[in-house]
Amino acid sequence: MTPRKNWLPHPILTPILTAIWLLLNNSIAPGQILLGLLLGWAIPRFTLAFWPERVRIHAPGRLLHFAGVFLYDVLVANLAVARLILAGPRALRPAFVVVPLDLTNDLAISLLANTICLTPGTVSARLSVDRRHLLVHGLDVESPEELVATIKTRFEAPLKAIFEGSIKC
């Protein structure tokens, strides 16, 4: 490990921790910013053993775009689920669907599972042992193939571009 890596092991985590500290205190006084930066530097430095891998973001622009798509989908999915619940249990067509995964990065897989849980009427239920398939439960599924295709193009493709780059490594 190079000295620079040792000194600042997670360059992305530091600003996030600082922002959380400032939000927690609800102030942007200079002293709080300083303390936040200190904590943001010290916490990743001393918990290095828990985070062996470095997070790399290959496409920051796409990350923002993905966040926008995600928030929009959360809103739409919530309205859809609310309507389904009000319509009553008889109208539902629940189904289990297996989604084959192209992702290999652990963080990307967990983000995908979380995104699936929060968006279109689906909950991710189980990841297969070899991390190649994700079992998804859908609340109202019209056609399983279409659901798998939507998940793959809408969520998995951008996550793959963001965390693994375009070239498979």
């Binding site: 189904a95 289990f96 669907v97 599972a113 239920a125 189980r126 297969s128 079992l135």
Partner: peptide
Amino acid sequence: HLLAKAALHRQLPSLAVMQNNDRETKP
């Protein structure tokens, strides 16, 4: 996710239609 996993582990009955492929992930 954890609760769904626990429910699958306890083999709770489900109203869902199963897609019959991939034996490994199938509950």
